[in-house]
């Protein structure tokens, strides 16, 4: 498997798309550092980009890659090799190349200009988001039969998690604002990986405001390490569960 991953990774890393993605992140980050000397403000601006762009790029690129590699995957599966190996080598190659592009694009300027703890959290949460959305893309790709539909589903996923879901949460909170909704809110947030990645960030950036909550539950959640552990743990689930499902489907899929 490592050799397969090596060659596929080599192939993906040389695609123009990955190069543009890296450059885009790199230039945005450098630009922000140039515009603002306050590193925490830079992290804030980068976060806004990361939360929107990383899921979009990850899910769309992965879907397109999967369908462009369809015939090649077919050929690999006609070889004496386990489907799991083919699937995982595809997943790991795509995930690793997007992770590499992301860490270089965001991380290099940080190394150069310097950053603080919130910058490292940004790298972590962006990396998590990459893995989650690559997993989701594989799931949507194995569940649909044609490329256009798969890209449509991917965009829908992105739009849903980036915007629709939060509107839904806000509506629920507004409708039931007379009830104690602490745990419900946290449970709702756990249903959206973008929100979880964002929580990791606001735990760093806005902890003073978050401590304004009256409830003891939130106090523990935000004050101790619980919020961080919770968000990271559930994000890992968001990586593993769609990936596991996708693999199950792929193992029985007719190509």
């Amino acid at each position: 498997m490592p050799r397969i991953i090596k060659y596929i990774l080599y192939d993906i890393l040389r695609t123009r798309f990955i190069l543009f993605y890296t450059l885009f992140l790199l230039l945005s980050a450098v630009g922000m550092y140039q515009l603002d000397s306050d590193t925490s403000k830079v992290v804030l601006s980068m976060m806004n980009i990361v939360l929107i762009v990383v899921p979009l790029v990850s899910i769309v690129f992965t879907t397109i890659h999967f369908y462009n590699s369809y015939e090649f995957i077919e050929l690999m599966l006609a070889q004496p090799v386990n489907r799991t190996v083919v699937f995982l080598s595809q997943y790991l190659s795509v995930a690793l190349s997007l992770l590499l592009a992301y860490t270089v694009g965001i991380g290099l300027p940080m190394v150069f200009y310097g950053t603080e703890a919130s910058g490292l959290t940004l790298i972590l949460s962006g990396a998590m988001l990459t893995l989650v959305f690559v997993s989701l893309a594989f799931l949507s790709a194995v569940l649909t039969r044609d490329k256009a539909k798969a890209i449509g589903v991917a965009l829908l996923f992105w739009f849903y998690f980036s915007l629709i879901f939060d509107a839904f949460v806000l509506w629920i909170l507004y409708s039931f604002s007379d009830y104690p909704l602490e745990k419900v809110t946290v449970a709702l947030i756990a249903l959206n990986p973008v929100d979880l990645a964002r929580i990791l960030m606001i735990l760093q950036l806005d902890v003073s405001a978050l401590m304004g909550y009256t409830g003891a539950f939130f106090k523990d959640f935000f004050g101790g390490g619980m919020g961080f552990a919770f968000a990271t743990g559930v994000l890992l689930l968001w990586v593993a569960v769609p990936l596991g499902l996708a693999m199950r489907v792929f193992k029985r899929k007719d190509l």
Binding site: R3, I4, D11, R14, T15, Y70, E71, L75, A78, Q79
Partner: peptide, 30 residues
């Protein structure tokens, strides 16, 4: 499938992979 050689109708391969690399990779898989 080690007993089967398959030639697909449309051969599409990763764009940036070289022929030599493809051969090497296939040898590794088989």
């Amino acid at each position: 499938r080690a007993s089967i050689g398959y030639m697909p109708q449309i051969g599409r391969y990763p764009d940036n992979m070289r022929i030599g690399q493809l051969m090497d990779m296939m040898m590794n898989i088989r």
